[in-house]
Write a protein that binds this DNA or RNA. Sequence first.
DNA 1: CTGTTAGCGCCTTCAT
DNA 2: ATGAAGGCGCTAACAG
Lengths: 340, 340
Amino acid sequence: MTGIKALARHLDLSIGTVSRALNDKADVSPATRKRVLAAARELGYRPNHSGRALRQGRTSTIGLVLETGSPASLAGDAFFMQLIDAMQETFSAAGTDLVLLPCRSADDPIEFLRRQVGRRMVDALVITATRRQDPRIAMLVEEGMPFLALGRSGTPGDWPWIDLDFEGVADRAVAELAALGHRRIALVAPRKEVNLAHVWMDGYRAAIRRHGLEEHEGLMLRLSVSENGGRQAAEAVLGMDPRPTALLLVSEMMAPGVYARLGEAGLEPGRDLSVIGFRRNPQLGFLRPELAGFALDLRALGTAVGEAALGLAVSPADPVRLVWPMDYVPAASVRPPPAE
Amino acid sequence: MTGIKALARHLDLSIGTVSRALNDKADVSPATRKRVLAAARELGYRPNHSGRALRQGRTSTIGLVLETGSPASLAGDAFFMQLIDAMQETFSAAGTDLVLLPCRSADDPIEFLRRQVGRRMVDALVITATRRQDPRIAMLVEEGMPFLALGRSGTPGDWPWIDLDFEGVADRAVAELAALGHRRIALVAPRKEVNLAHVWMDGYRAAIRRHGLEEHEGLMLRLSVSENGGRQAAEAVLGMDPRPTALLLVSEMMAPGVYARLGEAGLEPGRDLSVIGFRRNPQLGFLRPELAGFALDLRALGTAVGEAALGLAVSPADPVRLVWPMDYVPAASVRPPPAE
DNA sequence: CTGTTAGCGCCTTCAT
DNA sequence: ATGAAGGCGCTAACAG
């Protein structure tokens, strides 16, 4: 028995008074409050989560759904771990907890979410890897479960989302390459049917057209987001005739594979093939030449995501819809195309 | 109101009867049970987690603590994601849920755990990255919170743990290399002060001594477990004089970095420097020559971990203590040392 | 076989 | 400023 009852008895106070003191409510004498807080700390009292949740009708917990077992979760994890870190900081200040809900890739995501919704273990959900048509969204809207999507989707409705600016990145990357004289730019998109793949490819297509560059569906590769996917991308580019002079990656995690495969072919990134990774990633600082990419402040993004998630319960109206901008950072992996 | 009360009213039954029917208790007529289950499905009834937890004194939820924000979490994540996937399968069959509890690297892990313990949101905890002296263990024992440690620790007591056979792997790897004629074997251990680093190094030292190989603390490198750490390992080996003829990695995720750095120096893994990665990882199938390592069935391990975790609540006595064996799988990255 | 009742731990209203 | 009491949703013991 480490509950509030024991604490109250220990202090020779009523449960109600102790509760008010702990929760910073009015109508408690300063002396009593102080005494209660001291005793609570001393006895290591923590409110029982279930009791509080039952009474208050909310759990002060937000769940982030993660897909496990899928190969794509792999490269993204470093990303998510940092994002989660920042989210949690924001939550912590608001007295909210973050739990990660692993959804088995083998399980039906709809069934998984429905279960979470019904259990009412979390007040809100953050879902990731949104699909172009995402039945999870319609379901959550219908069930009335507040949620934030990390990623847009074609699914209609006024639901809140935050997404990276894949379109803007593709646009800017193509512009940079075009300005240097590149005319054949290959693109790597995720193999998975996530929405961002389409945003990314659409952004690329539009930019290619705008700059009057070579337009050809064969220049767009769908590969797994991993080092090996990068190898395969380089492999594919090497096999193209005429060979593209630049390669645009949907994830910088593929770059080491690209570099390795180019090296094996006696080619050098930048000199023989310009490469733009998606996100500037300090973890890849070892790459030579340095990889051009787009700066992303994961801490700031995590804070924004955290705040949006916290706001879900508060203001269901006017949902967040935020495209997170990213700034191009040039590097030696991007140079003018080699002379033909 | 989607609770049991509404369901009972809808069926014109008492709450108690409905509850018994739903929970497969005795003393419910088959007809009633069928009717209740049908209505529950139709109305999408799911028991409220808090209500049930409060009443039963347990949450049927197990928490796995993850460190976020730390660089080491990075390479390990693919590992964990697969492990989690298998754990969850086991839990699911037992009606238990798995939640991941992200612990910020900036936060005090003891405080974090104490909080989780007090909240009683999970029935048991699985902790990872055990330290040589790990205050978390003493704390959890003292608080009476059932837990399973993924990793041993020098912390005394009869607490349950499951660990990979780092010692056996080091021993076998050294034996294989010695049999081929290697006499100078470099070792890479994690930079972080995790217990496995010491088990790993001790296993290596013992094996080196047993085989009468060159013994020198300078042959043991402490590096971050990442591709870049692998680069640094290769870099260090290249700088040693006399140069080691073999390199033993604590994680296969470092191998691409090793290969890349060797390639830059005009050296070839296997021919010029034998390399053994820790775990056979299909994800690294692209490496040439293929990387020698130790087979690990992550699904089986996940199942074992899941079962051990489920058993925590049941049988606090006789705690699991399991060293998970791994089998050596030779590959072309290991060859006799080059002629001097 | 079913209904009634008590109570898990907590917060909140109402009474004092 | 404090205590008493009710009830959040659920299950388990008991009564019928």
